[in-house]
Design a protein around this nucleic acid. Structure first.
Lengths: 330, 330
DNA sequence: CCTAAAATTGCAAACGTTTGCGGTAAATTT
DNA sequence: AAATTTACCGCAAACGTTTGCAATTTTAGG
């Protein structure tokens, strides 16, 4: 079945294509009478403009590209959900590609975005991306890029991210308030700037405001490693009264071990983490956490994108603030 | 900076646009010498074909639409991850929209897909969609639709889904094998066909092969409800030796309660669920589950889509098989 | 009534490709 | 050396829109 086009409508109505086009978008040049006729026929013939033709003609696509390490991820999927909502409201659609933390995929994905002349891209750097030339190519094409979560260091880019330092500090505050004496603090991959930032902020704060509290810092790369690390450090004699998990992944490992050893939370040990909120809600008692909302980050990123498109200069880096959510584990 | 086009290349090389076009795609009509020249310039000028122009000209888009109730969902995001992988391999990109279980959004999303002349759409019906006219409109436009997970009843549609009945039966088998005497079986929203199917299959199987086992069937609509229901039925005197959770959502509620009451798994109670696998792995011991892989479903859906596009008639309904994964909770 | 202004509508080019067909020059066959 | 292939390349239309401008009709002012 052949699609309805402007030409077809024009023929049937004995009008020119341009008149039909204008009528459809309520152009003041067109009389009410013709507008009505055109709309009527368009409806009955189920006319739907061809997005490609429009994009070709107007050189703008109403599509945003999104590139994440993985879609199947509690944080990123809520981020995506947020920008999807906003996009729809603003008449944009989303093209989502995953990098799988592989710079080569990242490259190809950006290429697809360029070829589709997306209006903008939301990008989360894959874990070890060094070379940002690819993104330079995007600005050459006048395609705005908003980086989120894992962002480049340079100031010239537009970026939104969690207030990592704040998160760590809020966690530290609560740990101090609990009167913790011995803390086991677990962080992620030390090569990632997010781990560095959180650890540094945490450590500095603890040393400054609770110098007597003894903290042990450990880096782990997965839930399994975290579980093993927790097991090892918890040893036979329960030496720690509080454990801090930098991410959900780490929290999961810790909680596995806590369940296995049947340690009572919060009586025998206090638990606090940085999280989206979903994982902490799975346990009893709920784990207290510092909230980093992918959803909020998405909303913020979208605002930045729109500002960027409208041409207004945007602040180079915005962060979404964190707040503490009491669970019962502290 | 202006984009490189065929025209630009042609001008610089003193060739016609058509020659450049053909050279770029290794058309036999073009001499090796010119091909080399063209490729060289194209590379140095970073030529990237305009997808819209191509799509307009060729009337085919290399984009698939995906419509899910929610992206932020353990099952759907692994489904999406799977088709994204396959799509990339096959030169397609994905446009993902969420319905939020709202038929109105579903309608709008499909409209966007039509306007973008997607090559096909993967659709998961929103929970209470009754009217399938919208999807008829897609076939009018020759856009193939592969339904997944929540699928229409009619045979004329192409669909892939989990083998719901098999899942329930496998769970039942394992419950019987455990020698369960009193089972608490929790199912989801009774209005959904997935709940009906699983419950019916489970019940029939139990009644046939373990008529003496006492089963209590309960429907709940959320984790919270599941938690409350479990609490209520578990009562003071521990009456059940086994609990079956139809979904992750329900399992989460059950486990909350189990942790709170400090019930020992599997000694005091056996736990089994139907799941993707992620949630069951969060607990100690890991919860045994019947695996329903969104990832596998995605792969299968993609095969169906490709078959559909190639024009070969596809089987109306395919299911991905389920398998039992031993956790330690039974 | 005539003319100028206002209200409508149409023409045609442009966006960047692809592709059928026709044209020329070189190579091959008689 | 003439006739026929073969190899290479360009012309131009088409895909479905948008939009500046010109053309036409209607309306209003005198």
């Amino acid at each position: 079945m052949t699609n309805t086009t402007l030409k077809l409508l024009a023929q049937q109505l004995q009008l020119s294509i341009s008149t039909v086009s204008r009528a459809l978008k309520d152009h003041p040049d067109i009389s009410t009478a013709t507008k009505e006729k055109v709309h009527a026929l368009a409806n009955s013939l189920d006319y739907e403009p061809n997005a490609y033709a429009i994009q070709l003609r107007t050189q703008s696509s109403k599509i945003f590209g999104v590139i994440v390490p993985a879609i199947a991820n509690l944080f990123y999927d809520s981020f995506i959900a947020a920008i999807e909502e906003e996009s729809r409201k603003n008449g944009y659609a989303l093209m989502i590609l995953q990098s799988s933390n592989n710079p080569e995929n990242e490259l190809n994905n950006l290429k697809i975005f360029r070829q589709n002349r997306v209006s903008g891209v939301f990008a989360c750097l894959s874990a070890h991306t060094q070379n940002l030339d690819v993104y330079e190519k995007m600005s050459d094409r006048d395609i705005p890029v908003v980086f989120f979560d894992i962002v480049p260091k340079e100031n010239k880019y537009t970026k939104v991210r969690m207030a990592d330092e704040r998160c760590a500090i809020i966690a530290a505050e609560n740990i101090i308030q609990r009167g913790a004496k011995r803390v086991l603090a677990l962080f992620g991959d030390p090569a990632l700037s997010i781990s560095q930032k959180r650890k540094q902020a945490f450590q500095q704060f603890m040393e400054k405001y609770a110098p007597k509290t003894h903290c042990t810092y450990v880096h782990t790369n997965s839930s399994l490693e975290a579980e093993a690390a927790f097991n090892k450090h918890i040893g036979k004699t329960q030496k720690f009264d509080t454990v801090f998990a930098m991410t959900d992944e780490i929290l999961i490992g810790v909680m596995k071990s806590i369940q296995a050893l049947n340690i009572k939370v919060p009586k025998e040990i206090g638990v606090i983490s940085i999280s989206n909120g979903f994982i902490p809600s799975l346990y009893h008692p709920n784990i207290s956490y510092v909230e980093t909302s992918g959803y909020e980050l998405g909303k913020l990123a979208f605002v930045q994108m729109l500002a960027n498109i409208k041409g207004g200069k945007t602040l180079s880096e915005l962060t979404v603030d964190a707040k503490f959510v009491e669970g019962g584990s502290m």
